[in-house]
């Protein structure tokens, strides 16, 4: 397949990357990390830009430490890293749910957080879209899922936002105008087209994880047809800490792929001191209720919604019992 054409830039530092961005017209370029998401869309000629700026040589986006993961780090490297496995085993295991091992060797953390929203009518070839008249996230001005012209319901389908959200991670953003930090659970907003609060000229440089995260039990569960390759049909994460008497002290939950943005809810205050069993059921039900999947992925909407409760309930039970999915082989 022939990609949409572009000019490629490969800056060697964050400053160079940002100054390139400053020179190019707003919205006239895309950043590229591993390219495993972006290039699918360029192959399908979806919203391609004239310029692409590669971030793979930006040193500021590298490094994995006890506080921070560079956004340019490859997913496989992150999940294999001793620091991550030790401090945030739930994240290491969640990463094994992303795409496939081959893709995780290229795909980056930043790219995963910014993975394009997905929809049956959008993730198709130009020929296919031509037969349907295309939609407003691509070439036309109307939604084909929910016929109207305002909101795009493409599903946010990244696997890692939920787990990073429940760990209270924060994004380091840099732009020609300066830097800022945004909590992941406040980052996603809008609809399938305006997906988050990031401006086009901003780069995710790194992801900061608070010290507290390593004291939590956290994990991610994913609904999909096949263990590998498939984007989530629903995904849920939770973080948990029980007090010495076995009651809830901290409980956060998140879901992905059941709305245009991931959902994050912190139940700690509400549930503090409660018995896990009742709390878990309520949390799972509350997250299910918030889920609003649309008919634009492979599995039926009702089923995806219903599975929030089942998967999240099981995840919470597993967290309490200290069970993992065993997806990471012993060293």
């Amino acid at each position: 397949m022939i990609l949409a054409p572009f000019t490629l830039h490969r800056p060697e530092s964050l400053a160079e990357a940002l100054s390139l961005a400053a020179k190019l017209p707003d919205g006239g370029y895309d950043w590229i990390g591993g390219g495993t998401d972006l290039l699918q869309n360029y192959k399908n000629r979806l919203n391609a830009k004239d310029h692409v700026i590669a971030l793979d040589r930006v040193p500021e986006m590298r490094g994995i430490s006890a506080e921070r993961i560079g956004a340019g780090e490859r997913l496989a490297v992150i999940s294999e890293s001793a620091v991550v496995r030790e401090r945030w085993p739930g994240l290491a295991e969640a990463i094994t749910h992303v795409a496939s091992p081959l893709i995780r060797n290229s795909g980056t953390l930043g790219g995963n957080l910014l993975v394009e929203t997905r929809c049956y009518y959008f993730n198709q070839t130009p020929f296919w879209r031509g037969t349907k008249g295309s939609c407003m996230k691509a070439e036309s001005d109307e939604c084909l899922v929910v016929p109207q012209k305002e909101i795009c319901y493409a599903a946010y389908s990244g696997d890692l936002a939920p787990i990073l959200g429940v760990l209270s991670a924060t994004l380091e953003l840099a732009s020609p105008a300066g830097t800022r930090e945004v909590r992941i659970d406040e980052f996603y907003a809008g609809d399938g087209i305006r997906k988050n609060v990031k401006r086009a000229d901003e780069i995710i440089v790194g992801v900061k994880v608070p010290a507290e995260a390593s004291t939590l039990r956290a994990g991610y569960r994913k609904l999909r047809h096949r263990d590998a390759l498939d984007y989530p049909e629903m995904g849920c994460a939770a973080a948990l800490r029980l007090d010495p008497s076995g009651r809830i002290e901290l409980l956060r939950a998140a879901t992905t792929a059941v709305d245009v943005v991931p959902h994050f809810l912190d139940f700690s205050e509400l549930m503090r001191g409660q018995e896990p069993d009742t709390a878990f059921a309520e949390v799972a039900a509350a997250m299910e209720e918030r889920a609003q999947p649309k008919k634009n992925t492979s599995m039926p909407v009702g089923y995806r919604k219903k599975m929030v409760r089942v998967y999240l309930g099981r995840l919470l039970d597993d967290l309490r019992a200290g069970r993992t999915e065993g997806r990471i082989p012993a060293a």
Partner: peptide
């Protein structure tokens, strides 16, 4: 995965790798 090659020792998909990179 038919297009898998090694880049710096890691197997990656050459159909999703820009040559210049």
């Amino acid at each position: 995965g038919c297009c898998t090659v090694h880049v710096d020792g890691r197997p990656v998909l050459s159909c999703l790798t820009l040559t210049l990179l």
